[in-house]
Design a protein around this nucleic acid. Structure first.
Lengths: 146, 146
DNA sequence: GATGATCGTCAGATTATCTGACTAATATCG
DNA sequence: CGATATTAGTCAGATAATCTGACGATCATC
């Protein structure tokens, strides 16, 4: 009994989860084993100069309460810190802290490794086209980017 | 300050979530408003002739306990039913039931609509290439498909 | 300066998820 | 055939993640 070809949503899910799982496994194996999937989803959206909680929430597509809950844990574990936002006294910036900075190269290495595997399987041309297409798609799918 | 181009994992996430959100919104608006996101993730993987709980769990990438918990709720709400698996007395098949069948065309219509929007934005050629690439990628990312 | 929006948090409830242990049925292999 | 190992699903209990609603503080606008 041949399986139907799944719709594009499912196909996106499969690839997305594969990447996510690989990164979390590697980071965990490197000694950062107290980070959860939900925490990692928020953590990875922190920009180089820090990101506001509300923005993190929006990008990770959770409520700001949930983002706050996860940032609390990341903060307690030493991965991030909250600093005042100089441009707005209501806001605070979530920044990558010492321990978080140590985890970054591990994560980056796995992402590169997985992308290389995908490129090897698909061919460089297709891989480049995939990335390009997803970037374009973002214009219609990412409320934050608009 | 220009945002870095996110990695492919994030890009996949954005597209995946956009599709998922649209489908759930439409299904909910059509009166199937008691279904949750997690339930929908399991529901959509049920095959035409029913699917075993363990397979559902594997495809949705949750434990079978979690899948069972979600199927319980779907069953109570009338979306699915459990029937004995004729080929194995230990197993049962989760099948789409009356109410679930009513929701299917709604979901299918939105998926088609979103895909059409994406195709309009990307062009037919790129859209077809995206699907093709994701199908190929599945060979290395989907443990179930292998 | 008053008024309304925005930023984050507090409180409380619910939902989703996992690990571990267990029963029943099947498959394997000597 | 019969012992043993494997597989399908469930039960029990704990934990993690998520939401809605309400609030205080600050900002923006007029």
């Amino acid at each position: 009994m041949p399986r139907d070809e799944p719709n594009v949503g499912v196909l996106l899910f499969l690839a997305y989860r594969a990447m996510e799982r690989r990164v979390l496994e590697a980071v965990s194996a490197a000694g950062f084993d107290d980070i959860t999937l939900a925490q990692a989803r928020v953590f990875q959206r922190i920009g180089p100069d820090g990101t506001r909680l509300g923005d993190l929430a929006e990008q990770a597509q959770v409520t700001k309460q949930t983002a706050g809950f996860l940032v609390d844990q990341l903060e307690r574990a030493g991965y991030v810190e909250r600093v005042p936002d100089p441009s707005d006294a209501r806001a605070r910036l979530v920044r990558v802290a010492e321990r978080g900075r140590a985890a970054l190269p591990v994560a980056a290495a796995v992402v590169a490794e997985v992308e290389a595997e995908w490129a090897a399987h698909l061919g460089q041309r297709r891989m480049a086209a995939l990335r390009d297409t997803l970037v374009r798609l973002r214009e219609v799918t990412d409320p934050y980017a608009r």
